[in-house]
């Protein structure tokens, strides 16, 4: 299925707006006092959940594109990745502002003391270079190869994000949701391993 420039612009606009809905919902809830008894917890979990959803969506682009043959999906990947970064930033800001009141020393102690926060923090920091090099100009300046190598960091970032969630829930023995993410991300990553293995085998047999 090929898309015209115009169709693509429409799709991009729609997706852009859809991706803002979780934030709009959160703001709406806050204004209507619907964030429950513990608003901090609600906002933290909500922004964390959406970060994981967008990370998974970003990782799903390539497999879906290959299976369904929708090459145009690739043109949405940057937006999805940037939205993952956007919600991760809101998640981090919630932690820094509402949880620690910009007390950097206190926040840093928390990052070091609690492994689930350490790994979440590292994942967030690792997202920064990806977000900063997401522009066409940066791709050109880095060169496609190096850019691609850098952006493979995502294969570490997403499992780190899932581990962050898993460890957060582990103390309470409540693992059904983190396991769901682990399976989904595992499948999305294994598909890549499989394709790579398949491609290299084909290349070998063609060489013979």
């Amino acid at each position: 299925m090929a898309m015209s420039q115009r169709q693509m612009a429409v799709i991009k606009t729609i997706v852009f707006i859809l991706c803002l809905l979780p934030l709009a919902r959160l703001v709406g809830f806050a204004m209507l006092d619907q964030l429950g008894a513990n608003p901090l917890e609600f906002i933290t979990r909500n922004t964390g959940d959406w970060t994981l959803y967008f990370l998974c969506a970003t990782l799903a682009v390539t497999p879906i594109r290959k299976i369904a043959g929708w090459s145009w999906l690739l043109r949405l990947r940057r937006m999805l990745g940037l939205y993952a970064f956007f919600y991760a930033s809101l998640h981090f800001l919630t932690f820094l502002w509402f949880d620690h009141f910009f007390d950097l020393a206190e926040m840093w102690a928390d990052v070091l003391k609690r492994p689930f926060i350490t790994v979440g923090f590292l994942a967030f920091v690792a997202l920064l270079p990806l977000a900063l090099t997401s522009t066409n100009g940066m791709i050109r300046r880095l060169g496609g190869k190096r850019w691609q190598l850098l952006h493979r960091l995502i294969y570490l970032i997403v499992p780190a994000g899932v581990l962050h969630y898993y460890w957060m829930k582990a103390g309470k023995h409540d693992l059904s949701q983190p396991l769901m993410f682990a399976v989904l991300v595992g499948v999305l990553l294994l598909m890549r391993v499989w394709w790579r293995w398949f491609a290299s085998r084909n290349a070998l047999s063609q060489g013979r």
Binding site: A37, I43, A109, K113, R114
Partner: peptide
């Protein structure tokens, strides 16, 4: 005495300590 995964030095009073209070 902290919980191994978080500090117990402070707490948030439900319904009183809002988002913008320490």
């Amino acid at each position: 005495v902290d919980h191994p995964r978080w500090s117990q030095a402070t707490e948030r009073r439900i319904g009183e300590d809002g988002l913008f209070t320490r």
